[in-house]
Write a protein that binds this DNA or RNA. Structure first.
Length: 497
RNA sequence: GGUCGCGUGGCCGAGUGGCUAGGCACAGCUCUGCAAAAGCUGCUACUGCGGUUCGAAUCCGCACGCGACCUCCA
């Protein structure tokens, strides 16, 4: 790795709310955990955004030379429903609604989730553990918390004792909450008579007889509490203290706060060194969420069959659209923005194709190799500055202009500069941003190409006899079929419009 | 009600004390048989009102508007 590419990698740590240099606990190893999906319904585009943001982090860490163990769980137990009156978990509710075994629901939506991840070229994590696969470990953790005096049993359930914990440790540090204010503002205590304090949360919950997913435990038949699985699985695979924990902003409180409390209460160690939170995808300024009913699935996105969509957009268009915004900012979905991204991505990809064919030149105004190196450095600086993909993309477009100008003979690039640009673009576009060429989606297969080439030949014959009317007619008719012919000084090329 | 955050050009969206972000759109020009593509040029903004400063979109205060969390949610 060239020296110029180095430099501190800085991440915004939610814990301090500041940018901090990232230094792993045990270099070159990095432990990274992110909260995965609850597999009881289709993931929507907002979920995708978060996993994509962490995909960028995963890719960048690996590029920097770290050996990353990325753990992303599958929540297949289901958390308690917000409506505490029925106490039924979400996976069970889904199963009843669809008349399926709970694990059928889990499998169906896990498969769907994986399909979506592949569609958006989001790399699989190193380990993808499931909550149901770690019931024993969860029971063990409940025992440790009980033994340390930070939980109590009530009627077959076990609750985390927040006031007891808060006497010794800071509860609410991550989300900036003060325990007194939390106590003053608690609402919805009905149906929670078992709790000693409204702030307490279940770490083991007694299952009613009709409950579908349940396991034996020292406290009777039940299921693990809302926040326990992440604590258990991160500890198991990454250790009691690990480097990075990520999740959506909406998980900060109470989920992540409870995770911290559980780990500290069980093992006496602060679990996470860097907390990273991604911001929400919004629609008309409102969070995209299942509960808002304003989400759509990736399939609807591709086909355009949803009332929010004017037409379909490719997965890579969406990926590019999302990466043009910083992960910590809200991103508002709109058709106009998607269409702008689509054109921008086309231009970027076209420039990469041009770059592959570019010949070295010296005749025109020369772009120095220093200028290309400076561009490369700015790309690294942007990524090292809290994964600033929008700035990195902006820099790439500076490179796009260099490439296109060189192609027009207005700028000269040396052989070395072309090679350097080629390396930089392939690295940043494919490896770091994780964009893919969509030639398959464009349908440029051999038979199609042969067919269009035949029309190009006919048109060239017409043009040679100055029969421009026929030449233009061929072009216009192909255009009506979505085939765009482009005359260049090196001949005619075609693409799908 | 409490806590936190945001308000940037026609649209999306970076920036965080002085220097053109970038993309898309639009207009003109160059190239071209005509198109398309590409390049160049133009449009050059920071919610409002005060304050700090030689200088603020950027820091501070107030107001207005919006959002997130406080309940499952990425």
């Amino acid at each position: 790795m060239a020296e110029l590419r180095k430099g501190p990698f800085v991440l915004t740590n939610t814990l301090s709310r500041k940018k901090e240099e990232f230094v792993p606990l045990d270099p070159p190893n990095v432990g990274f955990y992110s909260c995965g999906p609850t597999v009881y319904s289709d993931v929507h585009l907002g979920n995708v955004r978060t996993f994509m943001s962490f995909d960028i982090l995963f890719r960048w860490l690996k590029h920097l030379g770290y050996k990353v163990r990325y753990v992303r769980n599958i929540t297949d137990v289901g958390h308690l429903l917000g409506d505490a009156a029925d106490g039924e978990d979400r996976i069970s509710k889904g199963a009843r609604a669809e008349k399926l075994e709970p694990m059928e629901i889990v499998q169906k939506y896990t498969n769907g989730f994986h399909d979506v991840m592949r569609m958006f070229n989001i790399q699989p994590p190193s380990i993808e553990p499931t909550a149901t696969g770690h019931i024993i470990e969860q029971i063990e953790m409940v025992k440790r918390i009980l033994a340390n005096g930070y939980a109590y049993e009530a009627n077959g359930s076990v609750y985390f004792d927040v006031p007891a914990y808060a006497k010794k440790y800071a509860y609410g540090e991550l989300s900036g909450r003060k325990i007194d204010e939390l106590m003053a503002n608690t609402r919805g205590t009905e149906g929670q008579q078992e709790k000693k304090d409204p702030l307490d949360f279940a770490i083991w919950k007694k299952a009613e007889t009709e409950h579908l997913m349940k396991w034996p435990s020292p406290w009777g038949e039940g299921f693990p509490g809302w926040h326990l699985e992440c604590s258990v699985m991160s500890t198991k695979y990454l250790g009691r203290t690990f480097d990075i924990h990520g999740g959506g902003m909406d998980l900060k409180f109470p989920h992540h706060e409870c995770e911290i409390a559980q780990s500290v209460a069980a093992d006496g160690q602060v679990p996470v060194r860097y907390w990273i939170h991604t911001n929400m995808l919004t629609v008309n300024g409102r969070k995209m969420a299942k509960s808002e009913g304003n989400g759509f699935t990736p399939q609807e996105l591709l086909t355009g069959e949803h009332k929010l969509l004017e037409r379909g957009y490719s997965a890579m268009t969406v990926r590019f659209f999302m990466l043009q915004c910083h992960y910590a900012s809200t991103l508002d979905f709109s058709n106009a923005a998607l269409q702008a991204a689509e054109k921008g991505l086309d231009r970027l990809m076209a420039a990469m194709s041009t770059l592959g064919k570019l010949k070295p030149a010296t005749s025109a105004e020369e772009v120095t190799e220093e200028a290309v190196s400076a561009l490369e450095q700015r790309c690294y600086d942007a990524m090292n500055d809290d994964l600033n993909t929008p700035v990195m993309i902006a820099e790439l477009f500076e490179g796009v202009r260099m490439i296109n100008s060189a192609n027009d003979g207005k700028l000269a690039l040396s052989e070395g500069s072309i090679a350097q640009l080629d390396r930089l673009f392939k690295l940043m576009v494919f490896d770091v941003l994780g964009l893919l060429e969509e030639q398959d989606a464009k349908g440029n297969d051999g038979a199609m190409d042969g067919l269009v080439q035949e029309f190009i030949r006919l048109r060239n014959e017409a043009k040679a006899r100055k029969d421009f009317a026929t030449g233009d007619a061929i072009r216009e008719r192909l255009s009506a079929l979505g085939i765009l012919l482009k005359d260049t000084k090196d001949g005619t090329t075609w693409e799908r419009a």
